[in-house]
Design a binder for these strands. Structure first.
Length: 716
DNA sequence: GCCTAACGCCTTTTT
DNA sequence: GGCGTTAGGC
């Protein structure tokens, strides 16, 4: 028997033991959310629930696999028959079962973003829209808007009016393209990510026996990261639960960071309304971070427009003061980050150290520096494994093995053949589909390389098991890869080996293809001790002893596009909150003074991120990079700051007023009116930062950054 | 008609 | 470094 009382706090216990009705757990960052789910899983099984009746929906398949395996360890028995995964993978699996019964949507090939974009472009071209119009939205924008309008369930012109006013003149054309896109997909048996959810909803609504069977099977439904579900996902939960199913939703409204994808915080806030009688449990005690780190996190969240009814507290009152390091530029930042990592490495293993950033490309300079320094790292987010060109190529061959009518796959598989382009591929696909052997033979005779490809595909089809197919495809592709990527095929080679590794776990081609598109598994778990580089989004739900945040300047974090959109700014703020709360012991923030502008080939001054400006000056140790490359300490945390008192007997800690050093100015205060100035010797310059009490940092064209005492500057 | 190479443009987050 | 457009070749 598991000693729940010993291992859980009172609130967690309440959630774990709850029975007989809907349950909503509002779990602040680091409050033991995963632990609560894991123990509840164990508790259910211990209490006699058949694992087969449990459905665990999470944000990534990795998360559900980890929770199930932790619960297994706890229980000492298998949970294999429990179903865990993402909404999308669950939907796909159920739709396949339905298809096996001859019902549901026709096709069952799941397409990824790149495929969806290609089909969108075809729709646009077929309709002859936007020809020669340079400002016509491109396929990525079109696809983004089409998907957003479905996710947010807004009519397309409505969505464009709200989120992309500048495209309003194109709204009508985009609507036509969206319609055509849907038809093209349906006609080719393809499902995009959004279709998976809507098709499952349709199936549940239209096929009563199907719905009843699923309801009967999944009596216990648990949904993690509920704040990031969209409207249709919430309806799916309701449809699956039925009247008397037991539903547990877990999430944190303050960590909602997927609104851009249609996530609707209203789902979590409105849960008690949709599931009347729901019990609500709040977890607010943080077990992860030290108080100084929580002070910074709380300060960032405190400025949110939408007020969050929470303030994390911890008993880890002692700890290193978070640092803010102002580097001269984003280029020099990489070096300072590397230094800091070397320092931290003396205390923590590499895999407990993570560098977080807003967007994938921001880590490129650091990746270079790390490679040069020979420091092993693993990157999450940004370009995904299955999106790498060589992986997509291999997958294209496999898709053709299964379905020779897949025009998109033909395009990739024949990319190395000169004289065979998009139109030809479309024809080949059509002829294959219609079984027009005559036309195909003619083509094969005309282009020997095409003939070779056809023979190869036939040979692969003849192989019995999936493993043999996969290794043969990789073998065939090998020389093509060398030919197509002469400069970096060795790196891609490693990717193919990884793909083979991943494939080793599969018996079925369809499963393999769908899984790679739905939630690509990383290769084998890191045998080496590796540093972690990750986007903040991909770091969701994770924790590290030491966290380094880079590029904390306006236009990078928050992103430029969010600056003049209040709602987007709010999401960026929550994202920043998520980033800070990943840290257990050590938090280092980096903010370059200048950013390299690739187009202008020059450095331009950057403003400190407004979120960092909201942090009381005294909550951070501030360092500044000096010309020589060293660091000069600029300010320190005043020792008078008392840690937030942990609530004593109060059963619901709710909002603790905390002790804010109210009088201390925020970092960079006064920056709000940055402007131009003139110096007697350096001439006119742009003020980059105000350095209390009486200095300014100024960027003088031709002279670079200087720190000048106020008295010597003439304000313009 | 179809394909390729060359040129100018702007970079978000993810199932 | 990728996308879309355009010019020019087969």
């Amino acid at each position: 028997m598991i000693d729940y009382e010993q291992l859980l706090n009172e609130r967690q216990l309440e959630a774990v033991r709850h029975e007989g009705g809907p349950l909503l757990v509002i779990a602040g960052a680091g409050s033991g959310k995963t632990r609560t789910i894991v123990f509840r899983l164990a508790r259910l099984v211990e209490g006699g629930v058949d694992p087969e009746r449990i459905l665990l929906l999470t944000f990534t398949r990795k998360a559900s696999a980890e929770m199930l395996s932790r619960a297994e360890t706890l229980l000492g028995s298998s949970l294999r028959r429990a179903v865990g995964g993402t909404f999308h993978s669950f939907a796909f699996a159920q739709l396949r079962r339905l298809a096996a019964l001859g019902q549901g949507p026709a096709g069952l090939t799941v397409i990824d973003k790149a495929d969806a974009e290609d089909i969108t472009r075809m729709a646009k071209e077929e309709l002859g829209l936007g020809k020669g119009d340079k400002s016509f939205p491109k396929k990525s924008t079109l696809q983004e808007i089409i998907s957003k309008s479905r996710n947010k369930e807004l009519e397309l012109p409505d969505l464009v009016g709200r989120e992309a006013v500048h495209l309003l003149p194109y709204a009508e054309d985009m609507g036509k393209i969206a319609e055509r896109y849907q038809k093209l997909k349906a006609g080719n048996g393809l499902l995009d990510y959004d279709d998976l959810l809507f098709e499952l909803e349709k199936a549940l609504t239209e096929h009563q026996e199907f719905r009843d069977r699923l309801r009967e099977r999944f009596r216990q439904i648990m949904v993690d990261e509920y704040q990031d579900t969209n409207k249709v996902q919430a309806r799916l939960v309701r449809l699956l639960a039925g009247e008397d199913g037991e539903v547990m939703a877990v999430g944190d409204d303050a960590q909602s960071i997927y609104a851009f994808r249609g996530a609707d915080v209203a789902n979590i806030l409105g849960f008690p309304k949709i599931f009347p009688g729901a019990k609500v449990v709040r977890l607010e005690r943080n077990y992860r971070s030290t108080q100084p780190i929580l002070d910074v996190s709380n300060a960032i969240l405190a400025e949110a427009k939408e007020k969050f009814d929470k303030r994390l507290y911890t008993e880890r009152t002692e700890g290193e003061t978070p640092r803010l390091i102002r580097t001269m530029s984003d280029v020099s930042q990489a070096g300072r980050v590397l230094e800091r990592i070397r320092e931290l490495r003396r205390t923590y293993p590499l895999h407990e150290i993570a560098v977080l950033f807003r967007a994938g490309y921001q880590s490129y300079p650091l990746e270079l520096a790390l490679t040069k320094a020979g420091l092993p790292f693993r990157k999450y987010g940004g370009v995904r494994f299955h999106e790498a060109a060589h992986v997509k190529d291999v997958l294209a061959f496999l898709r053709l093995v299964r379905n020779p009518g897949d025009a998109l796959a033909w395009r990739r598989a024949a990319a190395h053949i000169k004289g065979v382009g998009e139109k030809t591929c479309g024809k080949i696909a059509l002829e294959s589909l219609q079984g027009d052997e005559k036309a195909l033979t003619k083509r094969r005779r005309k282009t020997p390389q095409l003939d070779e490809l056809f023979s190869e595909l036939d040979a692969i089809r003849g192989l019995k098991d999936f493993q043999a197919k996969l290794s043969r495809v990789i073998g065939f592709y090998q020389p093509i890869m060398v030919q197509m990527f002469p400069d970096d095929y060795p790196r891609r080679q490693a990717g193919l080996e990884e793909l083979a590794q991943i494939g080793a776990a599969y018996k079925d081609l369809d499963d393999f293809l769908a899984d790679l598109v739905l939630d690509p598994e990383e290769g084998e778990s890191h045998p080496e001790d590796e540093l972690v580089l990750t986007t903040v989004h991909s770091a969701k739900g994770l924790e590290f002893s030491a966290v380094l945040l880079i590029d904390l300047v306006e236009e990078r974090f928050p992103m430029k596009r969010a600056l003049d959109r209040p709602d987007d700014m709010e999401e960026e703020r929550r994202l920043m909150y998520v980033a800070c709360t990943r840290a257990k012991d050590s938090l280092t923030m980096f903010a370059p003074e200048c950013l390299w502008n690739r187009f202008k080939s020059m450095s331009e001054p950057a403003r400190l991120s407004p979120f960092v400006r909201d942090v009381p000056y005294a909550s951070l140790d501030v360092y500044r990079e000096t010309i020589g490359g060293g660091l000069a300490r600029e300010s320190g945390r005043t020792p008078t700051i008392k840690p937030l008192a942990p609530p004593s007997a109060d059963p619901d800690p709710g909002i603790e007023p905390g002790i804010q050093p109210a009088a201390s100015p925020a970092i960079g205060q006064g920056n709000k009116d940055l402007g131009m100035c003139r110096h007697r010797i350096f001439g006119p310059g742009k003020i980059v930062a105000f350095l209390p009490p009486n200095k300014y940092q100024v960027n003088f064209p031709g002279f670079g950054l200087k720190v000048i005492i106020e008295d010597y500057l003439e304000m313009l």
